[in-house]
């Protein structure tokens, strides 16, 4: 494997429904039909009650940075992009996602920064959820 190539998401039978929603620019997250718990990343069952009955619900796209780091010494595939923000974003719907907060000023991002979901095309067939400052 070329360690200089940027890693891309590779949907599985568990995550395909989620990635389809990302590619349609209408991101959805799993919610349990039995106990109502939401979770992220997508699992094949509810991680709260182990029910297999999951719905996928839309999100507002609004969130807050729960924590973050600014990568200053990246792995080979990301060299030249530093400094960039890797964030743990808490969506208003109550789950957390890893994503980049895309900005020209990484040092302006911190815990509590409000962010807004955007979709970044990474191949002609694949988009990735990302965030920008709201």
């Amino acid at each position: 494997m070329d360690d200089k190539a940027r890693p891309l998401p590779t949907p599985t039978s568990v995550s395909r429904r989620y990635w389809d929603s990302v590619n349609a620019e209408a991101l959805t997250i799993p919610r349990c039909r039995d106990c109502g718990a939401v979770h992220f990343y997508p699992h094949a069952l509810c991680v709260s009650c182990m029910s297999p009955n999951l719905d996928y619900i839309p999100v507002s796209g609004n969130g807050t940075v729960y924590t973050y780091t600014v990568i200053r010494s990246p792995q080979p595939a990301f060299r030249g992009m530093e400094p960039y923000v890797v964030a743990n974003v808490e969506l208003d719907e109550g789950v957390r996602m890893m994503a980049n907060v895309i900005t020209d000023d990484p040092d302006s991002v911190g815990i509590g920064t409000r962010v807004r979901l955007v979709y970044q095309p990474v191949t002609p067939d694949q988009k990735m959820p990302q965030f920008e400052k709201a």
């Binding site: 940027r6 890693p7 891309l8 792995q75 595939a77 890797v86 890893m98 994503a99």
Partner: peptide
């Protein structure tokens, strides 16, 4: 899951 939900964002492994 790291292949899908972490690696594409470049967290620089455990240090990040």
């Amino acid at each position: 899951y790291r292949l899908e939900f972490e690696d594409p964002y470049g967290p620089a492994g455990p240090p990040g």
